[in-house]
């Protein structure tokens, strides 16, 4: 069992939402990896690696990903999806933008606005 968490960041610093999603991922269980996609990913990845319970941090760096357009972010995540049982993202406007795209490409359901993993 492995869970991929998509980091929420502004190409400069990691946002606190990421920590909350990692907590949800821990409730699901299994190994937790974090994906940092965008620009300036090294510094953000270093912050993400400090979160307790994270197995590894993946980075993907390009100017296009830095703009956060749903099409490119979704394609990247779909490429990584094979190794994971669940993919989690904060329910920000950015997360809501690419996440259903990922779900549709994988032919799986998306569960929106999760408040608790039972």
């Amino acid at each position: 069992m492995a869970v991929l968490v998509i980091a929420d960041h502004d190409n400069a610093t990691l946002k606190d939402n990421t920590h909350k999603v990692v907590t949800a991922a821990q409730a699901i269980g299994g190994d937790i990896d974090i994906l940092v996609a965008g620009t300036n990913t090294a510094a953000i990845a270093a912050e993400a690696a400090k979160i307790a319970g994270v197995r590894k941090v993946l980075t993907a760096e390009s100017a296009e990903l830095g703009q956060g357009l749903a099409e490119s972010v979704a394609d990247l995540i779909v490429g990584l999806a094979g190794g994971y049982d669940a993919i989690l993202t904060p329910a920000t406007s950015q997360g809501k933008n690419f996440s259903p795209r990922v779900a549709a490409k994988l032919d799986v359901a998306q569960i929106s606005d999760v408040t608790e993993v039972v």
Partner: peptide
């Protein structure tokens, strides 16, 4: 309140 069909449609 899923906020998903538009994005899914465009992906498909």
């Amino acid at each position: 309140d899923n906020n998903a069909v538009g994005q899914m449609l465009s992906a498909l």
